[in-house]
Design a protein around this nucleic acid. Structure first.
Length: 680
DNA sequence: CGGTCGCTAAACACGA
DNA sequence: CTCGTGTTTAGCGACC
């Protein structure tokens, strides 16, 4: 069901299950039962909507935008040129002024006169001529395609117009149609402009002589700067539209457009034009436009899409023994067709999303650094975690990220509700991604109380997906209570919070409710307060924090986190994990909110991120210091035990500094409540 | 291998 | 008697 459209390649069923394998607490039953419902139904629906159906509409919209942009640039360019035009430009002048008509779309290749002129100049070698001809051919093809598309668009618009006339919106719609037509004409004009630039580029290459006195300068930066990105976008649009209306998918011209404009060396152009699929360069420049598209040229056997003997094309994972077979596979399985184009678009969106996320995370990191630096003076941003982070990040999809940029924790350090703010995010995310066998163990080891921000971030996810939250019952209960305005809840209200916040807890009520009660009774951090209307449960924050040392005891990373000397390391590592975990959710939600395709790759990315995080975890523990002395300090199983904040001091300086005052604040909160400390 | 931890299940008590 | 609440114990698996 969810294999529709290009999901067959982008989102493999097995990768999906992998995703859920990570997400589901109990892998077997819940995963198999629930996963298709909330998540996939949404995803696929959107996929269908935006990927399959309105391809043409999408194209129109984006093409218009592109056309507008290009027109602007064109105008600027024309101003710059300010009337000084080469003979070729003069030749084209009439066409540019011709009102909209199909006639103007006749391929504006080099005119016979121009060709004659070129030949007369006798500056062209046979090879150069060939290149020139091929480029002209490409342009012709391209224009023919545009012409076809234009016709179809006109038909469509007419159709729309007719329909809307019935609806009585005639004038407005006509105007709209006219606008669209105009925009499209502008796009065509731009095509001509491209030709001119093409010619000029030939001039630069010495294939054409330049008229003396002609200022060919303005075009140069334009061709090298604006063109590649803009035109790739244009190519994208053209291609998608093309493939949308006719699935034959022979898009040579599209690729030609790209290569013609992007590349500045004639020979490479030639090869690409002659056989777009013969070279992976073309593929690369097309599919990963934002990467250093030629970087792998220097490394013959390294390819961004190839690693560890596996094709890294999103959703592919085909095994290729050697580089050659990979190239074969790439050219055969990921040729330039509608599927690949769609996948490419998806990848671009993913990258955009990641960049966005990265920007946000950078900002947060900055704030965190500032914050932590003020708090504890010792730490310098530990280079190791930094490198670790960056390497992980780089190895993954967000390769555009600057190496030194770090993700950081998702929560605001100053979250009012939870005194311990650095910790929680760590846990949340960690557990969320390392789930599998580790599951909540991690969460509670860090015992990170979940911060409201953590939950808030993933709220939507857990609300809708019956995924077991990676938090312990104790953490959840605490969160529920702290979220309440009075910082107290009845048992039933806690129940409600669970069901409200987590789809997972909407079933097997007997089980988890029993667990909740069990936890409330068992943990002395939960204090039962007799109220007028009955009993309510509150959180003894000090007790809750006290649990931490013991649980953490086994977990070096947490200890690191607590020891001020390492205060910076673990938070950063954790931050990485947090950020990664965070990434997955936004990706997911974005996908479900209208970015149709993102979710598909998101799953794959998540898997990758998971892998990265496992890496991180192992590295982390490898370099972990000794155990915390705090494990000796153990709360006793006596609920009446007096609160002793001093207990939490010593090696836990960071924690205590972070928590001390908040703890007291919480105590005050309790004092505000009528019957609190002295119940019993 | 033993200890710890978290979870589940279940028994039991108590009151409405 | 049922149901909700609260306590306690036992067993299991994971982890250290």
């Amino acid at each position: 069901m969810f294999q529709c459209v290009f999901s067959s390649s982008v989102l493999q069923p097995h990768s999906t299950s992998c995703l859920f394998k990570h997400l589901f607490y109990h892998s077997a039953t819940p995963a198999s039962q629930k996963q298709p419902e909330p998540i996939y139904s949404k995803k696929t629906e959107i996929q269908r909507q935006t990927v399959r159906a309105p391809f043409a509409k999408l194209f129109i919209f984006s093409a218009l935008q592109v056309a507008r942009q290009l027109l602007l640039q064109q105008q600027q360019q024309q101003q710059q040129v300010s009337g000084l035009k080469s003979p070729k430009r003069n030749d084209k002048q009439p066409a540019l002024q011709v009102p909209v008509s199909v006639a103007m779309m006749t391929p504006q290749v080099i005119t016979p006169q121009q060709m004659q002129q070129i030949l007369q100049q006798q500056v062209l070698s046979p090879q150069q001529l060939q290149v020139l001809l091929q480029q002209q051919q490409a342009l012709m093809l391209q224009q023919q395609q545009l012409q076809e598309f234009y016709k179809k668009q006109q038909e469509q618009l007419q159709l729309q117009l007719l329909q809307q006339q019935h609806a009585g919106k005639q004038p407005k719609e006509q105007q709209q149609v006219a606008t669209q037509q105009l925009a499209f004409q502008q796009q065509l004009l731009q095509m001509q402009q491209l030709q001119q630039q093409h010619l000029l580029s030939l001039q630069r290459q010495g294939l054409l002589t330049i008229q003396p006195g002609q200022p060919a300068l303005p075009l140069q930066p334009l061709a090298q700067g604006m063109i590649p990105t803009e035109l790739q976008q244009l190519w994208k649009e053209v291609t998608s539209a093309h493939t949308a209306e006719e699935t034959t998918g022979n898009n040579h011209s599209s690729l030609d457009l790209t290569t013609t404009c992007v590349s500045s060396s004639a020979p490479s152009k030639t090869s690409l034009i002659m056989n777009p699929h013969a070279s992976t360069n073309g593929q690369l420049s097309v599919h990963t436009p934002k990467r250093e598209s030629l970087s792998h040229e220097e490394h013959p056997h390294s390819h961004p899409l190839y690693g560890h003997g596996v094709c890294k094309w999103p959703g592919c994972e085909a095994v290729c023994e050697d580089f050659q077979s990979f190239l074969k596979h790439l050219n055969s399985e990921h040729a330039l067709d509608d599927r690949s184009t769609a996948q490419c678009r998806v990848q671009m969106q993913v990258v955009q999303q990641l960049e966005l996320q990265l920007a946000k995370d950078k900002e947060r990191l900055q704030a965190m650094m500032t914050h932590l630096h003020v708090k504890s003076t010792e730490p310098k941003a530990a280079p190791q975690p930094l490198n670790l982070v960056s390497s992980v990040t780089l190895s993954k999809s967000a390769s555009e990220a600057s190496p030194q940029s770090l993700p950081h924790t998702p929560t605001t350090p100053t979250a009012p509700l939870t005194p311990v703010t650095q910790g929680p995010s760590v846990i949340t995310t960690t557990s969320m991604h390392t789930v599998g066998p580790i599951r909540r163990r991690y969460s509670d080891k860090y015992n990170v109380p979940i911060s409201s921000a953590d939950i808030a971030q993933n709220q939507e996810f857990y609300k809708n997906a019956e995924v077991r939250p990676p938090f312990t019952y104790a953490s959840l209960i605490r969160q529920a209570i702290l979220e309440s305005p009075e910082k107290q809840l009845t048992l039933n209200e806690i129940y409600n919070w669970f069901t409200r916040m987590f789809a997972y807890f909407r079933r097997n009520a007997a089980t988890w409710k029993n667990a909740v009660r069990h936890n409330l009774s068992l943990h002395k951090c939960f204090v039962r307060v007799e109220n007028v209307k009955g009993a309510v449960w509150t959180v003894d924050e000090v007790e809750f924090q006290k649990r931490r040392p013991q649980k953490i005891s086994g977990n070096p990373s947490l200890i690191k986190n607590m020891q001020s000397s390492h205060a910076y390391c673990t938070p950063l590592n954790a931050a990485l994990q947090a950020s990664m975990a965070e990434n997955s959710i936004p990706l997911y939600t974005t996908a479900s909110m209208g970015n149709p395709t993102l979710g598909n790759l998101a799953s794959a990315i998540r898997e990758e991120l998971n892998g990265a995080m496992e890496h991180t975890n192992s590295n982390e523990s490898d370099s972990s210091p000794g155990r915390s002395p705090m494990q000796a300090v153990h709360p006793v199983h006596v609920k009446e035990e007096p609160l002793d904040p001093e207990e939490a001091e010593g090696p836990l300086s960071l924690v205590t500094t972070a928590n001390h005052s908040p703890d007291f604040d919480h105590d005050r909160d309790y004092e505000d409540e009528p019957v609190n400390e002295d119940m019993e």
